[in-house]
């Protein structure tokens, strides 16, 4: 199978790596691809709860590497869509429980089964990040339009480049259109000026993200919120489709979609 291993990373914590991993995994699976979302955050796993699969976790990928179970036993199948699996991290172990050789081995094992292998990286630039990235071909870097997040993204991009990952593409997350219009928030073009890498998507700030994480239902299952649509577009661009970038107002749900939803009396 022609597989792609993609690490989702940011340097800074709390900017949306897990949200992005879960939403892109669901969107890709709904597009008919065979997908596994790997939680590489050993000791601080969260992808299981964000995806709503925490009650079905039995084994984790360290169990696979240590021979306590087979890969198929550790994979949690998402029953809501065909071809979507979660490979959880161990919660009661530390980052030193695996070596980079083992992580490469794990990725090669997954390549035999899956088309898209999305790896949710832990925050930071230490071994946890390196292990998450080592087996990946390409990378998605998440940054919010804020000084600390952009600074950390720059550092991470340097490290990913030195590890030979390509392409390295940027997702600008939690953009607030009104603040950008007021000149009180960095715009996408500012972030691109500074980081000088390819943009793959812009996700607007959206309350639905918190709500979906509360429920354990990734937005891309059914939602038409601005963030859900943004993640769907990113998933399509990942598969190589050309999807135009909407204008700021449309990203934020004030454009065409907001108009339609208003027409049908839906809540914004």
């Amino acid at each position: 199978m022609d597989s792609r291993v993609i690490v989702i990373t940011s340097g800074k914590g709390g900017v949306g790596k897990t949200t992005t991993t879960s939403n892109l995994s669901v969107a890709l699976a709904r597009g008919g691809h065979r997908v596994v979302a790997v939680d590489a955050d050993i000791g601080l796993r969260n992808l299981d709860v964000v995806m709503g699969l925490e009650n079905r976790v039995v084994y984790n990928f360290i169990d696979v590497l240590e021979g306590n179970c087979r890969l198929n036993q550790a994979l949690v199948r998402d029953k809501r869509v065909d071809n979507l699996f979660l490979l959880p991290a161990a919660q009661t172990r530390t980052k030193d429980a695996v070596s980079s050789e083992q992580m490469e081995e794990l990725c090669n094992l997954l390549r035999q089964e899956f088309e898209y292998i999305l790896i949710d990286s832990p925050a930071g630039i230490e071994s946890g990040f390196r292990n998450a990235a080592v087996g990946a071909d390409e990378a998605l870097v998440i940054a919010t339009p804020e000084v600390p997040a952009v600074r950390d993204a720059d550092r991470i991009i340097g490290l990913l480049e030195s590890m030979g990952k390509a392409p390295i593409r940027l997702i600008v997350n939690r953009l607030r259109a009104q603040m950008v219009r007021d000149g009180e928030m960095l715009d996408v073009s500012d972030v691109l000026d500074i980081l000088a890498i390819e943009l793959i998507g812009v996700v607007p700030e959206d309350d639905s993200v918190v709500k979906s994480a509360n429920r354990g239902e990734p937005l891309t299952f059914s939602d038409v919120s601005p963030a859900a649509l943004a993640f769907q577009r990113i998933a399509m661009r990942l598969t190589g489709k050309e999807v135009p970038f909407p204008k700021l107002d449309e990203e934020n749900g004030r454009g065409l979609f907001a108009g339609i939803r208003k027409l049908f009396g839906m809540k914004n």
């Binding site: 804020e146 000084v147 600074r151 720059d154 340097g158 000149g183 928030m185 960095l186 500012d190």
Partner: peptide
């Protein structure tokens, strides 16, 4: 000032990154 805090953010980032990258 014609622009808000965004221009400060950009300036500060550009400078801090020269230093980081250096």
């Amino acid at each position: 000032s014609s622009s808000g805090s965004k221009s400060r953010a950009k300036e500060r980032l550009q400078i801090v990154l020269i230093h980081d990258r250096a």
